[in-house]
Write a protein that binds this DNA or RNA. Structure first.
Length: 309
DNA sequence: TCACAATGAACAA
DNA sequence: TGTTCCTTGTGAC
């Protein structure tokens, strides 16, 4: 259940663990057997994220595109028994038997005689392994082999990603794409063709951080605000990639920040806080459906005059 | 045991 | 706008 920061972390982790190495690939579940066979026993050359897309570039111009969707995840297990639940930023699953732990805690395998590699558990679409590391992919919305041309097509469709900033144009492209649609800003921020990597949590939080009415037309925002939105997404994304946590509150002292890193309920201004008091004005946070997704906002702080609906 | 939700997006109509 | 797909964990019975 990742937003852009998670996918960047996975890309970085795979670069560290796998780049330059020959990988054995398989599809224990069977749904990616042909693709796995084609990349197996070849070298991983690149591991790159753009927004929520992960591109793994192998020899012979073979590229695996992975999109985790709403509940996909990678489990990474090393021979030492450490296990990282990369798709779930706030938990780490550990060796057999699986134990859930809070962030930052690590633990080695309970029994040291656990076989390596461990047998796949559940629906593992793709397993990548070296002699001492295994990465299991479960529940992706997409896992496919693509050509360099196919990759270009996909990249061309994506809105800018601050972590993949091609010069200074990204902010301008973001502004351009907002300017050409009258759809509500709350909807547009989640459109991966407009800006890459923002999901339901970051959407709600960014809107609140700018006291922005989710129902305002994207093309009604002034240039300065649009610029601030772009810069802010860059700040939040960089922070998320660094910490692995979507920490969107700036109104915290060191103690509060430590608490927010542990308690998900403390981490956000509005996301998931329906009915609870706004952290700024105490008005109850509202949840409303917007195009099949839950939108959270403060009806007081994020009001604009003349909002329709 | 079962229903349901979850940080997503493609597709149909 | 609604439906479908992908998988797992939780909480109610």
């Amino acid at each position: 259940m990742p937003e852009g920061h998670t996918v960047h972390r996975i890309a970085q982790l795979f670069t560290e663990l796998f780049a330059g190495q020959v990988l054995v690939a398989s599809s224990p579940q069977g749904r990616f057997s042909e693709g796995a066979a084609l990349i197996s026993a070849t070298t991983l050359l690149t591991s790159q994220a753009i927004g929520k897309q992960l591109f793994l570039g192998f020899e012979a111009d073979r590229c695996v595109r992975v999109h985790l969707g709403i509940y996909g995840a990678w489990d990474v297990i090393s021979r030492s028994g450490e296990l990282t639940r990369a798709g779930s930023p706030d938990t780490v699953s550990l060796g057999a038997p699986r134990v859930r732990r809070r962030i930052g805690e690590t633990e080695t395998s309970i029994s040291s005689d656990v076989a390596f590699p461990p047998p796949p558990v559940g629906q593992v679409r793709l397993r990548l392994e070296t002699s001492d590391t295994v990465a299991d992919l479960r529940g992706p919305t997409a896992c496919e082999l693509i050509t360099p041309e196919g990759r270009e097509v996909i990249e061309a469709r994506l809105g800018p990603d601050p972590m993949h900033d091609r010069g200074k144009k990204s902010g301008a492209i973001f502004a351009q794409r907002l300017a050409r649609t009258s759809r509500p800003i709350g909807l547009v921020l989640m459109d991966q063709g407009v800006v890459s990597g923002i999901g339901n949590v970051y959407r709600a939080e960014i809107l609140f951080r700018h006291r922005l009415d989710p129902y305002l037309s994207a093309n009604s925002l002034d240039a300065e605000l649009v610029h601030r939105l772009w810069k802010d997404w860059g700040v939040l994304l960089a922070r998320g990639v660094q910490t692995g946590v979507m920490m969107t509150r700036d109104d915290l002292d060191a103690k509060g920040k430590a608490l927010a890193l542990e308690e998900r309920g403390e981490r956000y201004f509005v996301y998931g806080r329906q009915g609870q008091p706004c952290r700024v004005c105490r008005t109850p946070i509202v949840m409303a459906m917007m195009a099949t997704r839950k939108l959270y906002f403060c009806p007081q702080c994020q009001t604009s005059i003349g909002r329709s609906s």
